[in-house]
């Protein structure tokens, strides 16, 4: 398969209050972006267990986005600080897993930042097209 033709598969973990809202706002504003992202809705980005990210890559996701409220604005005060720490640990693990670091991305987006959500997806999709599909599991496939 030609790398430029494939639509990357991005699993995005969102929080109910900010980042899911920014995705909604992108929709309400009719901002168009590629259909690469699959949103998993959680109450807080702090719920994102690093194992969830690893399972995503293990099962063939080309990219993973961990998203939440801006630091200091977390609906649950400090949840996203944990997210940040866990994300930083995951970043280091990417090399160990044999995965390109650009496959993992962190996005802080408030519920009024629809534009930023769309731009992040467009950006990441573009980047994943350049890097190519996930080497594990031959880029998905199988149920």
């Amino acid at each position: 398969m030609k790398q430029t033709e494939y639509t990357p598969n991005i699993v995005a973990f969102t929080c109910n209050w900010c980042s899911y809202g920014s995705a909604d706002l992108a929709g309400i504003s009719r901002i168009q972006y590629p259909p690469s992202v699959k949103v998993v809705r959680l109450m807080c980005s702090g719920r994102v267990d690093p194992l969830m990210v690893i399972e995503s890559f293990k099962n063939g996701a080309d990219g993973v986005m961990v998203t939440g409220c801006h630091l200091g604005d977390c609906h649950y005060s400090t949840g996203n600080y944990r997210t940040k720490a866990r994300f930083e640990a995951l970043q280091k693990a990417m090399k160990l897993m044999g995965l390109h670091p650009d496959r993992l991305r962190l996005l802080w987006a408030s519920a009024s930042e629809g534009q930023q959500w769309a731009e992040a997806i467009i950006d990441m999709t573009e980047r994943l097209r350049e890097i190519g599909p996930n080497p594990i599991n031959n880029g998905g496939g199988g149920k």
Binding site: M1, E5, M52, E55, A61, G141
Partner: peptide, 17 residues
């Protein structure tokens, strides 16, 4: 959550042109 996440990760195959 895990079954949902795994399903999300595995949807890549069908999307490839």
């Amino acid at each position: 959550l895990m079954p949902e996440i795994i399903a999300a990760a595995r949807t890549g195959g069908e999307m490839v042109q």
